[in-house]
Every structure is written in C-alpha cells, then in structure tokens.
Design a protein around this nucleic acid. Structure first.
Length: 640
DNA sequence: ATGCAGCTAAACATTA
DNA sequence: CTAATGTTTAGCTGCA
C-alpha cells in the first residue's frame, strides 16, 4: 500500500521526471523522433502533453476563446482571473506547478478551473442562438454533470491521499508549505491531480463543441494499448504517440516556446496524437489545430485516449516506484529510522518465507513486491502493501526462538511500532511474547482479555483481521501457559504475567558461541560484501550489522541463515535491550513497564526485523561481551 | 527419529 | 439464549 512511503515515492518521481526530462529534452528538443524513448520519457512526455493541452484549454476558455483566434492567444496567460493556476503560463511544467502550489492551492486551482469552465460554458450558451439553446442546454447539463463527477473524483483522490497520510491538507485549510506538499503527495498523486484537470478540460472542450457526451470521463478501463488502438482515432496512433512523446513540455519551456510555441506543435509538426501534419509556422499550425482538431467526437476520443495513456503510465510509474523503493529499502537499510516500512516488511516477510511459510504459504513471496504497494502504505501500505502477506493469516509462522527466552520484544516493537501498526505484516513474535508484552505494558501490569485483544489490534494491523483465529490463539495461550495468571478482580478477571514462569519456559538457551556472528554473516552469503561487513562487525559496529541484516533480508538464503543465527543468539541480551531501546517506540501507555525486561532474557525475533537485530547487536556489541552477547541479542521472536 | 514449542482449529464449559 | 471468556485436545510444522 500503498503505503508506500510518500517520501520515497516522491523522491523517485522527481528523479524519474528529471531523468525523463533530461532525456526528453534532448531528444525532444530535436523534436524528433523518437526512436528510442524510454518508458519513463514516454510517460513524462505524454503526461506533459496532456497536461499542457488541458492547461491550454483552460486558458483559452478563460480568455473566452471560442473563436479560433482566441486559441492563438493561448500563449498569453493573461487574463485568467485569479488563481495561480490561471496566472501560470502554459509553459510551466507540472513539476513547477507542484513546486509553486501548495496542496490546498492545487485543489483550489482545480476547483477554480472547473468553475471557470463552467462559467464559460454558460456564457457561451447564453450567447448562443435560441435555436441552439436547447441543445446547448443539454450539453451544459451534461457538462455540469461531468464537472461534478470530476470534482467528486478529485475530492475522492484527495481524501484518499489524506487517508494515506500523504496529504494533510484540507480543502479550506491554510496554505501548506511547498515542501510539505512535495512530501505529502507522491508523484502519482500529483499526476492524478493533473490528470483530473486534464480530464476536466477535455470534457469541457467536448461540451463546448458539440455536446458530445464524454461520459467516459475517467472511467475507461481500456488498457493502454487498447486505447491507443481504439477505433476512434483515425490517425495513426503509434506514430502519434511517439510524436507526442517528443513534444515535451520542455519544448514549450525552451526557447521556442516563448516565441511561439505550443505544446502540440514542435519541429514543424503537429504533435496531436495521431497527427503528424506539417506546419510551416505557428500560424499555420493554429489553423490546422482549429480545423483538424476542433472539439468534436474524434478529438474528444483522442483526448480520452490520451488520458488513458497517461493513466496507464502513471500506474506503471507507481509500480516501478514501489519496486524501486523496495529495492532501496533492501539495499540501503536505513538504520536509524524506525520507519517500519521498509525493512520490517521485507524482513518479516522474508523471514517467514524462509522459515516455513515458504512451504505452505505464500506470505513471504508477495511481500517484497507487494509490500511496496502500499504503501505503502503505507500505509500502506500500506500499506497495503504489505497486506498481502499477512492475509493468509493462517500460516503459522514460527517464531521459534524468541519465546524461549524472553525477548526484547519491547525494543523491537518500539522500533518498528509504526510499521506494525500500519503494515499488515505478521509480527515475528509468538503470541505468548506478545501477550506478555501487552500485559507488562499496562499500567498495573494486568489486562482483561478484551484489553489484550485491543492491544493486539491497536499495535498490529495484522491482527485487525481474522479475529476469530488469533483471538482464539490468544485465549489458548493464556490458558496454556503457566506464565499467564488469571486473577479475579472486582470487575472481572484480568491476566497477569508470572515472569518466573515465563522465563522458565525456555531455558536460558544456549550460550552463544563466538562464532555465531560470524556464521550469521557468512550465512548471509554476501561475497565480497561480507568481507567488508565482517570487518565492520569485527569492529563491532552495529550499524554494519544492521546493514548486513538488511542485505540478508533481501535474499532468501541469507534470511535463513540469519534466522539461524538469531536463534542461536537468542538468549540473553535482553537486559541491554530492554534498558535502552525498548520503550522508545512504544506508546506512552506501553512505556510503563519495560523494566521487567531485565528478567527476561532478551529475545529478539529471530528473523524478523533487521532493525531489531541491529539494535540487539548493537547492544551486545556495546557490551564488553563478545559474540556471545551477540547471539543473545540476535534472538528474535516470531510470533505467530 | 524424537521431543519440544508454537500455531490453528475446534469442542466444550462457564459466565455475564 | 447469546456472546464472551476459559479450558482442553488434536493435528501440523519447524527446530534441535
């Protein structure tokens, strides 16, 4: 989900755009052909083309141009009342617009454009002969409906963004810093906005002209290729597409544009999709534009197709961006940030895969790629993103290790708290460890069953589904494990943790052998990298370890290895962990009781999160101890 | 091969 | 009676 991290997305986008721009420009400047346009360039160019066309329309209409001549005027931004948008010259690129406008402003812009168009339509209608009034009236009606649809669409989009946490703005809200906008909105979102605009415009055009019904608005389901091939387009789609590509906005922005440039005109050719008509000069082009590409069914259809193209490309871009994020996540591993997203996801998923899930459940697989979808989602992933893996819920993941000793779930959780809250990823802890953690976090170290349930759902997105299953498991664990003591209370029964029993559960585990770390690393199987990492490890730098972990995560094999290592390690370090890190991430409430930690050995989830690993490692390292410590720390728990 | 630990599922009892 | 809460048993899987 989606969730994707906005940041990453954003980052990606710019780069893509830039890259495309750069490429596009060069190629585009030539105007030529296209021989080898990369998908990105294509996307970029087409989007720009569509956007510009849309912008033009708005401007034109705003200026009152029903007449052809007015079209020519398009270049002057002039008159448009009000909004920045209006003030914005055509030449401004979407990116620029994005930078200039804050989310609220963008929204306002869209609304204004719509309103403006509506007004114009109305105006036009008013001045039209009575004979046509009826017809126009119908058109107007249709147009208005379309506008409404567009608005709804936009609102919906904005809401989605807000929901995803990508955008915090609210329609009426004050201006938002540009930066926030950029951060808040992922490229696709911005594109979507533009798309909406474009769509509106096209719609308007249509309306203006013949009353076509653009019912299509946005709903086209056709695929990119399909749309391109769509019968509606008389011209040669393919060539056009390419041309269009070439016509990058950049052209417009460049020198040519200033004087007499038109987004749809470049290198002496009409860049209208499917049209390669040669035009000696701007005047001729304008003429051609008005005669050949006036508002009619065909143009409308082409516009729609273009919209679809843009849409498809946006989707593609989003996917690629997600992939990139996932890749970066694996390779970069940002140590410090708690962002759950990245690593945790991967880790968790990977871990599970490596372990058992692989066999039975697909959980692991989907993650990497999917996770991105979230989105990110965040939130997505995400959110959502992540979700895929967890869905199965079923699988048992095993956590093996951790439970055995107590674990420093706290630190883990603390670090990846947000991640688990948003990502539909199964936590790598055992039910027992989670329950214990929940209880210990409570102010009085006791919780009712329902409160435990609530904690699970609050802390883990994963436990917001399949409630029957995990709740049953929770009850089962409470009853089964002696460490959970049921205490009759005035209000009813509450559950407490008997630390002694809990620790008894698992024997102090094995001692970590000094070699563990080494094994782990080697297990990861990094070639040369390993060497360096190992060296780093030698130095006992946690950071390195973290990275290593991440790296591992990326590869299944490595994961397994890692996993193993953890198990071994699992034992003791908890104290360290508990002391330090645990609480940080936890919510205030949770905070309270981390103290206990000491008692338990620190276990970490095995496989799971790199973060935790890192943390633990760090702790261990920090200690005078050696590998042994490491081992202990490494332990991870899985839960399932 | 065996035992342990953990997970899921389900049956059943008790209580609110 | 229903739903929530507890208890217990069974079958599986992974790991040591």
């Amino acid at each position: 989900m989606m969730v994707e991290s906005a940041t990453e997305t954003i980052r990606t986008t710019p780069s893509n755009q830039n890259g495309s721009d750069g490429g596009g420009r060069e190629g585009g400047s030539n105007g030529d052909t296209n021989g080898e346009i990369s998908p990105v360039d294509l996307l970029h160019l087409q989007q720009q083309q569509a956007l510009q066309a849309a912008r033009q329309f708005i401007l034109q209409q705003a200026t009152g141009l029903n007449s052809p001549s007015s079209n020519e005027v398009k270049q002057s931004p002039v008159q448009v009342p009000v909004s920045m948008a209006m003030m914005t010259p055509q030449m401004i690129t979407p990116q620029q617009m994005q930078q200039i406008l804050s989310p609220p402003q963008l929204q306002a812009l869209l609304q204004q454009q719509q309103a403006l168009m509506l007004q114009q339509v109305t105006h036009t209608l008013t001045h039209t002969g009575s004979s046509q009034q009826q017809q126009l009236g119908n058109k107007q009606l249709a147009f208005q409906q379309q506008l409404i649809q567009m608005q709804q669409l936009q609102q919906q989009h904005i809401l989605n963004l807000q929901r995803q946490g990508l955008v915090s703005l609210q329609p009426g809200q004050g201006a938002v810093p540009i930066q926030s906008l950029q951060q808040a909105m992922c490229p696709t979102d911005l594109q979507q906005l533009w798309k909406d605009v474009t769509g509106v415009q096209s719609t308007e055009e249509v309306m203006k002209h013949e009353g076509l019904d653009l019912t299509t608005n946005s709903s086209n389901t056709t695929s990119y290729s399909a749309s391109k091939v769509s019968p509606q387009i008389p011209h040669h789609p393919l060539p056009n597409g390419q041309n269009s590509v070439h016509t990058p906005k950049r052209d417009s922005s460049t020198h040519e544009e200033h004087t007499a440039s038109h987004p749809l005109y470049g290198h002496g050719e009409c860049k209208w999709p499917g049209c390669e008509a040669l035009c000696e000069d701007m005047g001729q082009f304008i003429k051609h534009l008005n005669s050949e590409h006036a508002l009619d069914d065909r143009s409308t259809a082409q516009c729609r197709v273009q919209m679809q193209v843009v849409q498809q490309l946006e989707i593609q871009l989003a996917k690629e961006s997600e992939r990139l994020q996932a890749m970066m996540t694996h390779l970069h591993m940002r140590p410090s940030e708690p962002k759950p997203f990245n690593q945790p996801l991967n880790l968790a998923s990977t871990m599970s895969l490596s372990k058992r899930e692989t066999e039975g459940f697909p959980e692991g697989l989907p993650h990497p790629p999917t996770s991105a979808a979230t989105p990110i989602t965040p939130m997505r992933q995400g959110p959502s993103v992540i979700s895929s893996s967890s869905l199965h819920g079923v699988g048992h993941i095993r956590r093996r290790n951790s439970d055995k000793f107590c674990t420093p779930i706290a630190s883990e959780l603390a670090q990846n708290c947000e991640f688990y809250k948003n990502a539909d990823v199964r936590p790598p802890f055992t039910y027992a460890s989670l329950i214990r953690h929940a209880i210990l976090e409570a102010p009085d170290r006791q919780l009712t069953l329902n409160e435990i349930y609530n904690w699970f759902t609050r802390m883990f997105a994963y436990f917001r589904r399949n409630t029957a299953t995990w709740k049953n498991a929770v009850r089962h664990n409470l009853s089964l494990h002696k460490c959970f003591v049921r205490v009759e209370n005035v209000k009813g029964a509450v559950w407490t943790v008997d630390e002694v029993e809990y620790q008894k559960r698992r024997p102090p585990k094995m001692t970590g052998s000094p070699t563990l770390v080494k094994n782990i690393i080697s297990g990861l199987g990094f070639g040369s990298l390993n060497a360096s990492y190992q060296a780093a490890l030698a130095e006992s730098s946690l950071g390195l370890l973290n990275s290593t972990t991440l790296m591992n995560n990326s590869t299944g094999a490595s994961l397994n290895m890692l996993h193993i290592g953890h198990d071994d390690v699992s034992s003791t370090v908890e104290q360290v962990n508990s002391n330090g890190s645990c609480s940080p991430g936890l919510s205030p409430q949770q905070y309270g009781h981390q103290i206990h930690v000491k008692e338990e050995p620190a276990e970490m989830e095995e496989d799971s999160r790199p973060m935790s690993l890192m943390a633990s490692v760090t702790q261990n390292l920090s200690m005078p101890g050696d590998e042994r410590d490491m081992e202990e720390e490494l332990p991870t728990e899985e839960l399932e």
